[in-house]
């Protein structure tokens, strides 16, 4: 049984302009100790999908009836979407599931010290005393490479540099020993030399803590460096997923291929950059059939009319494309 099992997740938002589909029929699984890279551009629904795992989406979110999110912990299985009260949700939010964000300033309260926030969270989720919580927090800060952890414990987030803040947020997220960590663009706002440090740290922590990680990013290089599996999203659909080597070396979906071709690569400066033609359609005007057909170089009439099913292209490697399935011969 996988740690996380997401089946047919469909999520719409009620807006003034009607129901807007943000995520459509997304299914994936994640094992403990595994890193899933969730890739996509703005508006692809990657953050909405991640927030659904903690039921963090706003009030106007409507989950389709057959959507299922199951979290299989050691003692019990939690049906996330059936959780209602704040107390039940606390089981997952900050407890079994933690989240780190792109902008660490946004997740620390500006007028509360880092230590007080860490302690508060620990006391809420674990049956421990304030003194124990303090010890655990300082150990955790030290573990993520913050020098002088006891001093930092009493400081405010604004007193730390960008890289240190990101480390502090990781420390806070991991102090409750979550089974699942969701990292939403955790390195995007960082400079490249600091990003390399944080990626290294996260790899160490995965090995040490053994939790499952969902790593959301738009940067395929970061995915290649951290993930075991990749899932590629476009306009709310999961168009391709599979082992990281397979997807990056033999991308099956034209969108994944387009993303890789559009990426400036340092080892090949001669090939001109190939943009994916056109713009991402507005979520209010979702294309019929395959959502990518308006920008796809391979699109045929059937792509406009019907939605392609997932086809398998190897162990765990799946993509939803009529044309590729025929050309490559789905397994």
């Amino acid at each position: 049984m996988s740690l996380l099992d997401v089946q047919h997740l469909t999520l719409q938002f009620r807006t003034d302009e009607g129901l807007v589909t943000a995520v459509e029929d997304v299914s994936f699984e994640l094992d403990a100790g595994e890193v899933l890279g969730l890739v996509g551009e703005s508006g692809s629904g990657k953050s909405v999908t991640a927030k659904a795992l903690m039921k963090l989406n706003p009030e106007n979110a409507v989950y389709a009836p057959d959507s299922r999110i199951e979290l299989n912990l050691q003692q019990r299985t939690i049906d996330v979407l059936s959780l209602k009260s704040g107390k039940d949700l606390q089981l997952i939010r900050g407890g079994a599931v933690s989240m780190i964000f792109q902008e660490p300033m946004a997740s620390f309260a500006p007028a509360i010290t880092i230590g007080d926030q860490m302690v508060e969270q620990l006391i809420l989720h674990k049956q421990i005393s304030k003194r124990e919580a303090r010890t655990i927090s300082i150990e955790m800060l030290d573990r993520v490479g913050i020098s002088d952890a006891a001093k930092r414990f009493d400081q405010y987030a604004f007193e730390l540099s960008g890289g240190m803040r990101q480390r502090a947020m990781i420390a806070m997220a991991l102090s409750t020993r979550p089974s699942l960590l969701i990292a939403d663009e955790p390195t995007t706002a960082l400079d490249v030399t600091i990003q390399a440090q944080v990626i290294d740290l996260m790899k160490d922590l995965i090995r040490e803590f053994g939790m499952g990680i969902i790593f959301i990013t738009h940067d395929l290089g970061v995915i290649a460096q951290t993930a075991d599996k990749v899932a590629v999203m476009y306009l709310g659909k999961l168009v391709e997923q599979g082992p990281v080597r397979e997807v990056i070396r033999h991308p099956a979906h034209p969108y994944t291929r387009g993303l890789l071709n559009a990426l400036p690569k340092l080892d090949d400066l001669d090939t001109p950059l190939q943009p994916i033609p056109g713009d991402i359609p507005s979520p209010l005007e979702r294309p019929s059939g395959c959502v990518f057909h308006t920008r796809c170089p391979l699109a045929e009439s059937r792509c406009r009319e019907s939605v392609p099913e997932y086809e398998s292209f190897g162990t765990g490697h799946k993509a939803a494309c009529f044309v590729t399935a025929e050309q490559r011969g789905a397994v």
Binding site: S161, G162, G163, M164, D191, V192, T193, I194, Q195, A196, Q197, I199, D200, K203, D219, L220, G221, V222, A224, Q225, V244, R245, I248, L260, L263, K265, L266
Partner: peptide
């Protein structure tokens, strides 16, 4: 040199080859 080697490689088999800089600016 450090800047160049900190760029995440697209090759999943080239992990951890970056020459790491300590500290921050």
């Amino acid at each position: 040199k450090a800047l160049l080697s900190a760029i995440p490689s697209l090759d999943p088999d080239q992990r951890g080859t970056a020459q790491k800089l300590e500290g921050e600016i």
